[in-house]
């Protein structure tokens, strides 16, 4: 069963949400891969968010990971949006601080850094 799901997953991760759904369905049958199912679902969510962001901000987010998305949002100055992504994916506070720190440095936004 796992093997079936796996072989399907290999192809399916190709950013096509519906295919991901298929994989989830197949995986749900086996109990051991609960974590995988959750991750795949999160992945779908991420893809949707990125799609929306692409439209809103006129920047390409496709293919980035969660952290990278937060990083990019912070660098572009959309801190509130980044915050939302964080809460959506339950990224830990520590991680976000690191990301924010790096992003602000990359942006050379010393003023905001001072405020932190």
């Amino acid at each position: 069963n796992v093997i079936v799901g796996e072989s399907l997953r290999q192809r399916d991760t190709q950013s096509k949400i519906d295919k991901l759904k298929l994989a989830v369905k197949l995986l749900q049958d086996s109990k051991e891969s609960a974590l995988e199912v959750k991750c795949l679902e999160e992945n779908m969510k991420l893809l949707r968010i990125q799609e929306a962001l692409d439209k809103d901000l006129d920047e390409s987010f496709a293919g980035l990971s969660v952290n990278e998305t937060i990083f990019k949002l912070t660098r572009l100055g959309h801190w509130s949006k980044a915050k939302k992504v964080q809460s959506d994916f339950k990224v830990s506070e520590r991680t976000v601080w690191w990301l924010r720190l790096r992003a602000l440095v990359a942006k050379r936004d010393w003023v905001e850094l001072e405020e932190l």
């Binding site: 290999q10 991760t13 991750c39 980035l64 990971s65 969660v66 990278e68 994916f89 990224v91």
Partner: peptide
């Protein structure tokens, strides 16, 4: 890891 490096690393 998945959050930081992307979901493709599930594999």
């Amino acid at each position: 890891i998945l959050h930081a490096y992307g979901f493709q690393h599930l594999l």
